Amino acid sequence: MLKLSNWSKSFKENTVLKNINLEIGTGDVLSIIGSSGSGKSTLLRSINFLEPADSGSMVFNGTELNVETITKKEILKIRQQTAMVFQNYALFSRKTAKENVMEALTQVQKLTKEEAMTQAEHYLTLVGMEQRMDYYPTQLSGGQQQRVGIARALAIQPDIILFDEPTSALDPEMVAGILDLIKQIAHQETTLILVTHEMNFARQVSDQIIFLDKGTILESGSPTKIFEAPEHERTRQFINGFQ
């Protein structure tokens, strides 16, 4: 379970997140939608402290943590229990698909090379990359690179996977395959938090959706509420823009 309270973030004079309050249960899928510049990616990156919030508190797996007093050790523990899938894949160019998946297993989780290799091969097979394990990123399509990124996230067996617009850098014909893959891993033990512009996908897969506008949660609720009965005109305008 993850809960954020009064979660705020600024870059100099620009307030990006304003008193964010949200809660997501174990195994649930939360989608974050909103216009470009609304703070979606910053919110996602603040959860595992890639972009630390300035103020607020977090409850993560029963432990309450305050941003202003959190220790490096506590941040490391959060990062060990979360994984992130980036829109630009963020693979090591000089490592094969298998080596990319093995990296965190050996460096962070301290598995032996043999253990990491077995686990990497398992998850690459799971995402349909069993024939491309020894290929380098430059030898893979965008969709294949993103599959490696998802395998890397799954391999560390995290409590939460954070997806930052995982299909935005893909050609249109590759998008459906990645969305189908995310659907396959949704609603299991791992909690998924997604920033996405794929409205139909968000509607199908999410337990909860939040609409972020100018750094605040303007509206939140079930997919049915957000898409069929939004309370705010701004939400309605945003949703209508995708129809």
Rank of each mutant, 00 (worst) to 15 (best):
M1N: 08
L4N: 03
N6H: 13
W7V: 01
S10K: 14
S10G: 07
E13L: 10
V16I: 13
E23D: 11
G27V: 03
D28H: 08
S31Y: 00
I32A: 00
S38V: 04
S38N: 04
G39F: 02
G39D: 04
L43D: 00
L44N: 03
S46R: 01
N48I: 07
F49N: 00
E51Y: 11
G56I: 09
S57K: 13
F60T: 08
E64L: 10
L65R: 13
V67M: 15
V67H: 01
E68S: 15
I75Q: 05
I75T: 06
L76I: 05
L76E: 12
K77R: 14
I78L: 12
Q81S: 13
T82D: 05
M84R: 08
F92M: 12
S93N: 13
R94C: 00
A97V: 00
A97H: 02
V101Q: 01
E103N: 05
L105A: 05
T112I: 11
K113I: 12
E115G: 11
E115Y: 07
E121Q: 14
Y123H: 12
G128P: 08
G128F: 11
M129P: 03
E130T: 12
Q131N: 14
Y135S: 13
Y135I: 02
L140M: 14
S141K: 10
G142I: 02
Q145M: 14
Q146T: 09
R147Q: 07
V148W: 08
A151P: 03
R152N: 06
R152I: 04
I156C: 10
Q157I: 07
I160C: 05
I161Q: 02
L162W: 02
F163S: 01
F163V: 01
P166I: 07
L170E: 02
E173P: 00
E173F: 07
M174W: 04
M174V: 08
I178Y: 00
D180V: 02
L181W: 01
I185R: 03
A186P: 11
E189L: 04
I193G: 01
L194W: 05
V195Q: 02
H197C: 04
E198G: 06
E198M: 09
M199W: 02
A202P: 07
A202I: 03
R203E: 15
R203F: 11
V205Y: 09
S206H: 04
D207H: 09
Q208M: 10
I210F: 01
F211T: 07
G215H: 10
T216N: 14
I217V: 14
L218W: 06
E219R: 10
P223C: 10
K225M: 13
F227G: 03
E228I: 03
R234C: 06
R234P: 00
T235C: 08
I239M: 03
N240W: 04
F242C: 09
F242K: 09
